[in-house]
């Protein structure tokens, strides 16, 4: 141990080392659990969103068609001179 430049290593209290290792393992478990939970939640949300997107797109398409027809009609009325 004489080749160590910063003196002999500190004897860290076993309680502190126990705290470090137990919190590390608890953290790994916590992270893995929430990763699992949140990715499941997100997958469900994406599925729902994909279903709703089809409906929403159709609705938007219909609205756009109606708006386009109304615009065309208005333009026609404008371009036809009133007697």
């Amino acid at each position: 141990m004489s080749d160590l430049p910063y003196g002999p290593p500190v004897r860290v209290s076993p309680f502190i080392r126990f705290g470090r290792w137990s919190l590390l393992t608890v953290g790994i478990a916590y992270g893995a659990f929430h990763q699992n939970r949140l990715s499941k939640k997100e997958a469900l949300f994406r599925e729902k969103e994909a279903k709703e997107k089809v409906i929403r797109d159709e609705k938007l398409k219909a609205e756009k068609a109606i708006a386009a027809a109304a615009e065309l009609k208005a333009l026609e009325e404008l371009s036809t001179p009133k007697k």
């Binding site: 290792w21 590390l24 953290g27 893995a32 990763q35």
Partner: peptide
Amino acid sequence: VLFWFYIGECIGKRHIVGYNV
């Protein structure tokens, strides 16, 4: 000692910032 928990969380979620879902 407390920060070891957050290191463990980062290992558990396999991402540094936030959860990569």
